[in-house]
Write a protein that binds this DNA or RNA. Structure first.
Lengths: 351, 351
DNA sequence: CTGAAAGCGCTTACAG
DNA sequence: CTGAAAGCGCTTACAG
């Protein structure tokens, strides 16, 4: 039973010191005799003291500054448009608490810009950072600087093992590929072939998309019922003419393609093509609830979309930083969000 | 830009009154001259004042008492085991705020018990109530009493239109049936038949399960590719012998059953049967991530489970009550949670 | 090294 | 009808 909570005052009385001294012990601000410190700490332990965050928040002049470093959303990277929503939501919820948020964005196709903007983040002297480590080399350099400055940081979208991140919140990339594999296996007629398409312009995606592909492929030998062929292709420059040309070619060579798996968020580009050609027999599956994907999902050109909750990633990332900064609450290092299976019939709930 | 927040003190100064008076206006405690009241209200509006919840929480002796009225989980109604987790989670998150929670449970099969326990809820003089309105008549009576006492209440799991509930958080029951229909349509070979099974012992479920069935059926004429027959059956007393007997009968009569849709959370009972008979060719789909369902999902006897986030229902219900009580925040009346599509490959993220 | 005091923005009696 | 004061549990100078 939660007995009445101990206060600093209670500890002070039991220890026969003033509350100022207790506070100094609790905050390790030194200037306390070792004997006093021990006595106080013992009582703190005994009473299982934890500070009243409300009182702390009310008093403290100190505002935590959290800075986000994420790609700038654009026509070609609409995926990143959802992330700020989670940040806003966290802000609103934390509203009365002492926290300030600044958002910094960088060009998804430009590693130099990432570097430049990471400078900017540091110049804001943040108390915590939330970032998507798109460019590995640059991200490592940046993270190391943060670590040196003792600034905690959390990853979303992906993580880099070699850094001392506080927490990762996001997709289990390999597993999300497996889910795609399972779904496509369920809906593809036995003996029909499956086409895997990588659409990518920037190097960053390579790791991400490869990992999904690995997960996807891993599904079949163990668990798949499908006996058809698995065909892979990449499209570097996904303008409509290229897509048309490449797809025409591959589909001419492989007339038995029953399903197409797009490893990234641009399945709508394939759907555009299939629609224009009047091809309805192919099961298309892709990632992320971009408007253009959702449109095709609803009209039946895309069968499944896999969602990775971009807004929840940022929302949770911000909250973890805040909890860590304000109450020393250390989050689980890895939090994989659910891999959402989205169809035309349940998409409404995810928007 | 959020200018520095207005405080009661600021309002008092601008209005040329004391903070006590401002407080009386804000809390409608009367005893204020109408002219004073108007002047203060104008300034409140102008400054877009909203109280600092932290300061309020720190000061207030008043603790909000929230009481939940939910079915007692049991072997036969394991579905209800998840709901308390959401309540606990909300409690932990709200921990330092002034809120007390009491949980009252009733026997899912006994309307008299619901009535008795609803008395108990009232005797706890709650400031807010969260309930699952399982028995319609009794729930209406209870809700009307709450309304008379001006005690706000929120529904989970289902809602009753005729009552003045603050908010509903839960499944879109009809639509979740449609999702099931779509999934089964995708995986059932054309021309194979589909069997719909209602397993129910208590009347309550009738409404719920019927609505799902309606949603399920609604999918086919418009959107389905499947051309087989749709067969319905009910199993009142779902002991293994009965299930075996009934299924043997129906499957003998309809040898082309390709899929089975169980409208409630007891699909594991059908899976038990299929497994014991060594039937692997039938696609089974059901509801809710009960341990026994998940086991069959993982081993392949169940293809899809549809989840309705029971813990999120209670979590959000409690938070809405708290926000309403402590900051007059009125929630959306209807909040449909996502219909989760769960397979053996993504189930890990939902547990 | 330690204590006493002020103050964060509210709410709650109490005095007038 | 209105104001002044105390206090919620902390943190932050400041004095000694």
């Amino acid at each position: 039973m939660p007995r009445k909570r101990a206060r600093i005052k209670d500890i002070a009385e039991l220890a026969g010191v003033s509350i100022g001294t207790v506070d100094r012990v609790l905050h390790k601000r030194g200037e306390v005799a070792e004997k006093t410190r021990e006595k106080v700490m013992k009582i703190v332990k005994d009473l299982d003291y934890s500070p009243n965050v409300i009182a702390r928040a009310l008093k403290s002049k100190k505002k935590f500054r959290v800075v986000s470093l994420l790609p700038e959303p654009s026509e070609e990277s609409a995926f990143w448009a959802k992330h700020p929503e989670g940040i806003i939501k966290a802000m609103n919820e934390l509203d009365p608490f002492p926290i300030i948020l600044s958002q910094v964005t960088f060009d998804l196709l430009d590693e130099k810009d990432f570097q430049k903007k990471s400078e900017k983040v540091i110049s804001l002297s943040p108390d915590g950072v939330i970032l998507a480590p798109i460019f590995k080399t640059q991200a490592i350099a940046f993270c190391n600087r943060l670590t040196k400055k003792q600034i905690p940081f959390v990853f979303i979208d992906g993580f880099i093992e070699e850094t001392e991140f506080l927490s990762y919140t996001g997709e289990d990339i390999f597993q999300s590929g497996r889910v795609a594999g399972q779904l496509i296996d369920m809906v593809t007629p036995v003996n029909m072939d499956i086409l895997i398409i990588n659409i990518t312009r920037n190097i960053r995606n390579v790791h991400h998309l490869n990992k999904r592909t690995q997960g996807f492929l891993s599904y079949f030998p163990e668990s798949g019922k499908n006996k058809g062929e698995l065909i892979s292709m990449s499209i570097i420059d996904p303008v409509p003419e290229n897509i048309r040309k490449e797809l025409k070619k591959v589909m001419a060579r492989n007339p038995d393609i029953g399903s197409i798996f797009v490893t990234g968020s641009k399945s709508y580009k394939i759907a555009d093509y299939l629609e224009s050609e009047g091809i309805h027999s192919v099961n298309l599956i892709g990632y992320d609830l971009l408007d253009r994907n959702v449109k095709h999902l609803r009209s039946g050109n895309i069968k499944f979309l896999i969602g990775q909750r971009p807004d929840e990633q940022t929302y949770k990332g911000v909250k973890k930083l805040f909890d860590y900064l304000s109450m020393d609450r250390v989050p689980d290092k890895m939090e994989y969000l659910p891999v959402d299976v989205v169809t035309s019939e349940n998409v409404q709930f995810f928007l």
